[in-house]
Design a protein around this nucleic acid. Structure first.
Length: 435
DNA sequence: TTTTGAGTTGTTCGA
DNA sequence: GTCGAACAACTCAAA
């Protein structure tokens, strides 16, 4: 029998530096076989061209290259059902342990439980590490042990607990930590093998320059300025570690950026404690709202043809680039739920399909916020006025003109609903349902 | 247990 | 144009 080795399973932590689980695996003393699995169940739901699949694939190529060059090792990439692949991997009898970083989404939790059970049957330990957040699960909770469901006290407690020297400690460099399994070749899987084409939409590199972070508070409300770090997708796929991002946030005099990272963790712990909110309103009676759910209106919203300029600009930016300015996200979400009375789950699903920085915890949390049904949500009578939002945040209409070329011509669509009427209809509907 | 103050991001209306 | 109140209570967090 060949010598035993352990496995490190990459998921949403696609980097070789400052990767807690990888470091732990290397320190086990056994050679490490790094693997990635394209999960068939997830891929089947996606269109032929998906920017995120392309991005993951590209990152895997990079990781594989540097493993080859620096460690004479390779990355084993699979396409299939995780459990079945692990069965195959352990069938040789040489796997001593499996290491991975924890993932808190309901689907991932279920998947990991199944894998863990399978490994256990074969007496193989499954070690998981905290990597994608500074604080997870119940690390920041109220004194009585219950989770926070209001952001501000959570944020304060988070900061109380936070010790940069301890929590931002970088992992050892890969070469110092241990060895990879060498000289094993695996067939490489191309996008085409999995039925995908390279996407025309590219994930932009992140920019953590100081000026950007220091000015974050000034620019974050003005979509035309696009003062964004593009950090979202990189935190999503782990091409940057949250610790490195937090370090940058700390260097800034301005806490706004750190607060955004804390929002991310706030929603992650909400999802951890309340996984059912993926499909159900956090405030249960909001599930009594009789959504109108008009398909043709949903289509217009998706395509940016509502006749409300800022809404349309946002949706078109999303469709073209996989990104939408946060200020505008709030508006289009409010518009869908309140003006059109379409179920927040429809909007959530559309964002899930399009956003490069899609993060289930934040997306569900923020959609429920917009609908009024979530934790710490906007009161239901707070209804954005799409015209007023233009005056406030895109006065020069630069953002609008950038994304809606025909905005000042006859071919631009009429308003899908009258603002005043829609507003009153919403207030009545909510009031009635929540009584 | 009870009390108190507070809660991401707004809009409208009337003075 | 500017300002404060109303919009609706409710529930959370902490003392």
């Amino acid at each position: 029998m060949a010598d035993s080795h352990c496995i490190f399973w990459f998921r949403r932590d696609l980097r070789l530096t400052d990767n807690k689980g990888l470091e732990t695996a290397l320190k086990s003393g056994k050679p490490v076989l790094p693997i990635f699995i394209f999960d068939k169940a997830i891929l089947e739901e996606l269109p032929e061209e998906d920017a995120r699949v392309s991005f993951i694939h590209k990152q895997l190529c990079k990781i594989s290259e540097s493993l080859k060059n620096d460690h004479k090792s390779g990355l084993a990439v699979f396409h299939g059902e995780p459990e079945a692949i692990f069965k195959r991997l352990i069938s040789e009898g040489t796997v001593a342990a499996v290491y991975t970083n924890r993932d808190y989404e309901p689907y991932a939790r279920k998947r990991d439980q199944a894998v863990e059970a399978l490994l256990k049957e074969n007496d193989i330990p499954f070690h998981t590490c905290k990597d994608q957040v500074i604080f997870e699960k119940s690390e920041v909770v109220k004194d009585d042990g219950d989770p926070y469901v209001v952001y501000t006290p959570y944020m304060k407690k988070w900061k109380e607990h936070f010790e940069p020297e301890k929590h931002l400690q970088k992992t050892d460099s890969v070469s110092d930590a241990g060895d990879f399994l060498r000289d094993r070749d695996f067939p490489w899987i191309s996008l085409e093998d999995m039925g995908f084409k390279p996407s025309e939409i590219e994930v932009p590199d992140y920019d953590l320059s100081t000026s950007l972070i220091d000015n974050y508070e000034d620019t974050r409300n003005f979509p035309a300025k696009d003062g964004t770090s593009h950090l979202g997708p990189h935190l999503r796929f782990g091409t940057i570690s949250v610790r490195q991002a937090a370090k940058k946030a700390l260097d800034s005099e301005n806490e706004t950026f750190l607060n955004e990272l804390i929002w991310r963790e706030f929603f992650m712990q909400i999802l951890w404690h309340y996984p059912e909110t993926v499909n159900n309103a956090f405030k249960k009676k909001y599930d009594r709202i009789p959504w109108r759910n008009k398909e043709e209106e949903f289509e217009k919203w998706k395509n940016g043809n509502t006749g409300y300029q800022l809404v349309d600009a946002g949706m078109r930016q999303l469709n073209k680039t996989g990104y939408m300015h946060n200020r505008v996200r709030m508006l289009v979400a409010s518009f869908l739920c309140k003006h059109l009375l379409i179920d927040w789950r429809w909007g959530e699903a559309y964002f899930a399909e399009k956003l490069l920085d899609y993060e289930q915890a934040s997306n569900v949390g923020n959609w429920q916020w917009a609908a009024g049904s979530g934790v710490d949500a906007a009161p239901y009578f707070r209804i954005f006025n799409p015209m007023t939002q233009v005056d406030k945040f895109d006065k020069g209409r630069n953002y609008i003109r950038q994304w809606v070329e025909e905005v000042d011509t006859d071919s631009y669509p009429d308003k899908i609903v009258d603002h005043k009427e829609a507003r009153e209809r919403c207030l009545e509907t909510y009031k009635e349902a929540l009584n």
